[in-house]
Design a protein around this nucleic acid. Sequence first.
DNA 1: CTAATGTGCGGACTGGCGCC
DNA 2: GGCGCCAGTCCGCACATTAG
Length: 346
Amino acid sequence: TKIEDIIVQVGRTGKLTPVAMLKPVSIGGTTVSRATLHNMDEIVRLGVKIGDWVEVERGGDVIPKVNRVVEDKDHLRGHKTFRMPQNCPVCGGQVVRTEGEADHRCVNANCPAKLRETILHFASRGVMNIDGMGDALVNQLTDRGLVRNVADIYKITKDDLLKLERFADKSAQNVLNEIEASKKLPLDRVIYGLGIRFVGERTAQFLAEHFGSMNALMNAGEEDLLEVEEVGPRIAQSIREFFQEPKNRELVEQLRRAGLTLSGKKKERGTKLAGKTFVLTGTLAHYTRDEAKKLIEDAGGRVSGSVSKKTDYVVAGDDAGSKLDKAKQLRVKVINESEMANLVAG
DNA sequence: CTAATGTGCGGACTGGCGCC
DNA sequence: GGCGCCAGTCCGCACATTAG
């Protein structure tokens, strides 16, 4: 199909992601109209220009991927070269590509796009799980200045919500209930929710287990941080920089006052699956993926996202895709979910 | 009541880069 | 240098709720 335009999206960390806007095309039963181009290097590698015809594929039947530029006499090349903007398309702030890095980033700390994405991340299911706080609500909240940081979420009143578009009593109350419920979530979620660069779900869990409280984490020195699993110098530095910022320390205090869980106990893990790495694929019948993951981790195992020769087991449910193929290729042991349950039980 | 709208769910890929 | 986490990305569908 044809690339009609290339737009730029700004993420939570300020990363500018170029996205190809395609002439809609039906692939495998769904209509594909966008595909990520990742970064400038990828655009150069593919050699794409705006107006080009390209071959698009859905990796694993889901994610649209631009494979290559089609060059034949029917499909003339486009003429407009895409250039990464020098100013953020959202806030106009300076865009910088650091030496040695592939991504361009907006460096304005107050960029509204970053705020918006940070709030969305915080509210998302894998983090504070605030059901109902998606795109539309977050846009309204940030546009109206009702939410300027993640702690402001806990100051939202019903009156605030009722003034918003498409909000009546039922929706407003649902959101408030969800916000209230989020306060009970454990420390690792809160750490993850802060949006510290290089600290994702897994690293946040290790940090919570190691330090046992937000206070201990906030005041940790470099050497303390380096003791944590999977934390090296770059991650340690990123965490220290985050907590050296007075605004961020104040943010944590606001979360504390709001009643969030900022301490936990050092988690005890089982040992039955110690040292074993699992990969989940397909649809499981008796567990959600999160439940299966928790079972494995509580038994001392690890769950990762991709199959390699270090993977011990691939747990395959219905409609397993490319990961199952990879497992066969690498001769990794494939089991079903009841076999997994047996392993967990010992 | 119906139509429109917003959101979660659930599947998964990718390149970059940090860690070991 | 390999591995795997991080951060970003996709879409259709089901469902709840609101506006009209």
